[in-house]
């Protein structure tokens, strides 16, 4: 993680300096807002990586002599396949169409979205409905 936090905190410093320079030269708020919050964007990621690096210590990717097998092991839990994203996306379409066609459709869409999001997030929490 060493390279990752150095990269992102370096970008933070760059954007921070750019924000100051831009603010002094341009006297215009939109660019200042965009640059200041870009500083924030890279700061969030950089700080998190720095924090994680400090918590976990040296990772195999930090050492040039590391072997591939040192990075082996469980990466996390990944769904082997799920149909739930499809109805979630469909409900989002209904919400968006409702903004054009009428609020009644948006309300229906929000209801559908809630149901499908609950289905999506609870898929592996239901007893006996583990991944097949």
């Amino acid at each position: 993680m060493k390279f990752a936090w150095k990269l992102f905190l370096g970008i933070t410093v760059f954007y921070g300096a750019l924000t100051v320079v831009y603010a002094m030269l341009a006297h215009e708020v939109v660019g200042i807002t965009a640059l200041a919050l870009s500083t924030g964007l890279s700061l969030i990621i950089g700080y998190y990586f720095w924090f994680t690096d400090r918590r976990l210590g040296a990772q195999p990717q930090d050492r040039l002599q590391a072997e591939i097998h040192e990075g082996a092991g469980e990466l996390g839990f990944f769904s082997p396949g799920s149909w739930w994203p499809l109805p979630v996306a469909g409900s989002t379409i209904v919400v968006g169409l409702g903004l054009i066609l009428g609020w009644w459709l948006t309300m229906i869409g929000v209801g559908l979205l809630l149901i499908t999001v609950i289905g999506f997030t609870m898929e592996y929490s239901r007893p006996g409905h583990g991944p097949h």
């Binding site: 990772q59 092991g73 996390g76 583990g130």
Partner: peptide, 13 residues
Amino acid sequence: HSESGTAPANRPN
């Protein structure tokens, strides 16, 4: 797998 956790403690989550 799904219950034992998302990642072991020695790698970023």
